[in-house]
C-alpha cells in the first residue's frame, strides 16, 4: 500500500475525485509532444471525451470523423498502415458495440496498431441512461484475438495505461469513465501492463476488481477487517492478457474469491477470473456486477446502490464466500 495515495481509504465524500477520462486526456498531450506518430480520432464527442485538449494543441493530428464510428475505426486502421499510432475515442457503447465487426475484421484480424479508448463505461455514466452506459465492452473486446483490454482504477492509472498502450504493438482497448471517482494511486504508483496490482496481502478472502470497483473493494476490505475478515485486494487493471499467476497465488492462499466490476457479469472481468480459477485452482467464487439487465437514468451513486455495486454489496459477497468455503 506504500505507493498508494492514501494510507487509509476514506468514505467517498472525503476522497479527492477525478474522472479517468482526465488522465487519458493528459496522457494524449504527453504523447502528442513526444511522438509525432500519435494521432487522435473522435466521433463528435471530443468535448466529452476531452480529446479536444489534444485537438487544440495538435490540430493537424486530430481528426473529427463525425458521427460515423464504423468509418472512424476503418480510417484509424488505414492511418496505422502508414505508421501512425491512432487513438480512437468515443463512448464505449458506440465504439465497442456499434463498430464491433470493424474492430474484429479491420483491426484485430489484421492486427493493426490501433488504440481504442471507450469513454462512459459503466452505470456511473448516470442520467444519460441505459443507451449510453457501456456494460458489455469488456466481454465483447476480450473475446477478440489480438485485442488487449485495460480498465484503469483511477485517473493516474488511466494516464499511465494510455502512455503504456502507445508502446504496446497491436490493438488495445482502454475503458474510461465519465463520473469523478476517488483517486487512490499516485503519479508514481507503477503501472505494469499485464501484471495485476496486489493492494492488500491478507488471508481470508481475495477481492479482484477493476475500475471504480477497486476503490469500493478497498473500502469494503477496511470494513471487513473490523469484522475479523482479512482481504487480499487485487486491482486487475489488465483484463487481457490476464495475470493468471497473481490470481492463482491469491486464490491458493485465501481459498475464496470475490470479483467486482461495473459491468455485466456475463463474460466480463469476473468471468475472466472464473475461467482461470475453474481450470487451475477451483475455489469458492462470488461475483458482484450487473446481473443481466440494462441500466436506467439516475445519479451515478444512486445507480450504483440500486444495482448492488457498492462496498456493502462486496462485503456481503465476501462474507458469503468465506462462509461457503468452510
Amino acid at each position: 500500500m506504500s505507493d498508494l495515495h492514501l494510507k487509509k481509504i476514506l468514505e467517498l465524500d472525503s476522497m479527492k475525485q477525478q474522472p479517468t477520462r482526465f488522465g487519458y486526456a493528459d496522457a494524449l498531450l504527453d504523447l502528442g509532444a513526444k511522438d509525432k506518430r500519435v494521432v487522435v480520432l473522435d466521433a463528435d464527442l471530443s468535448k466529452s471525451t476531452l480529446t479536444n485538449r489534444f485537438a487544440e494543441k495538435y490540430p493537424k493530428r486530430f481528426f473529427d470523423i463525425g458521427i460515423a464510428e464504423q468509418n472512424m475505426l476503418g480510417m484509424a486502421g488505414g492511418l496505422s498502415l502508414t505508421g501512425k499510432i491512432p487513438f480512437v475515442t468515443t463512448y464505449g457503447v458506440f465504439l465497442a458495440g456499434r463498430a464491433w465487426d470493424q474492430i474484429r475484421t479491420s483491426i484485430c484480424y489484421a492486427d493493426l496498431n490501433v488504440k481504442l479508448a471507450g469513454a462512459h463505461g459503466g452505470l456511473s455514466v448516470g442520467p444519460d441512461g441505459a443507451t449510453h452506459q457501456a456494460l458489455e465492452e469488456i466481454s465483447i473486446m476480450r473475446v477478440l484475438p489480438n485485442m488487449k483490454v485495460i480498465v484503469p482504477c483511477d485517473t493516474h492509472q488511466a494516464r499511465l495505461a494510455t502512455l503504456e498502450a502507445a508502446k504496446i504493438s497491436g490493438p488495445v482497448y482502454i475503458r474510461l469513465g465519465r463520473e469523478p471517482i476517488p483517486v487512490i494511486t499516485t503519479n508514481r504508483t507503477p503501472f505494469r501492463f499485464g501484471e495485476a496490482q496486489v493492494m492488500q496481502q491478507e488471508k481470508d478472502v481475495t477481492i479482484v476488481a477493476c475500475g471504480l470497483m477497486v476503490y469500493l473493494s478497498l473500502l469494503a476490505a477496511q470494513k471487513l477487517a473490523k469484522d475479523g475478515i482479512s482481504c487480499q485486494v487485487i486491482n486487475l487493471h489488465t483484463i487481457k492478457p490476464i495475470d493468471r499467476k497473481a490470481i492463482i497465488a491469491s486464490a491458493k492462499k485465501t481459498g475464496a474469491v470475490v470479483t467486482a466490476e461495473e459491468h455485466q457479469l456475463a463474460g466480463g472481468m469476473g468471468s475472466a477470473v472464473a475461467e482461470v480459477l475453474a481450470q487451475e485452482c477451483p475455489v469458492t467464487v462470488e461475483m458482484v456486477g450487473v446481473k443481466d439487465t440494462f441500466g436506467e437514468s439516475g445519479q451515478p451513486w444512486e445507480l450504483m446502490k440500486k444495482y448492488h455495486l457498492m462496498d456493502g454489496d462486496i462485503i456481503k459477497a465476501a462474507k458469503k464466500a468465506v462462509q461457503r468455503k468452510k
Binding site: 476503418g74 502508414t82 505508421g83 470493424q102 479491420s106
Partner: peptide, 15 residues
C-alpha cells in the same frame, strides 16, 4: 466483411 475497405483506403490516403 463487406463495406470496410473504403474506410481503410481513406485512412491510408489521409496518412
Amino acid at each position: 466483411s463487406l463495406g470496410q475497405g473504403l474506410s481503410i483506403a481513406a485512412g491510408m490516403a489521409l496518412g
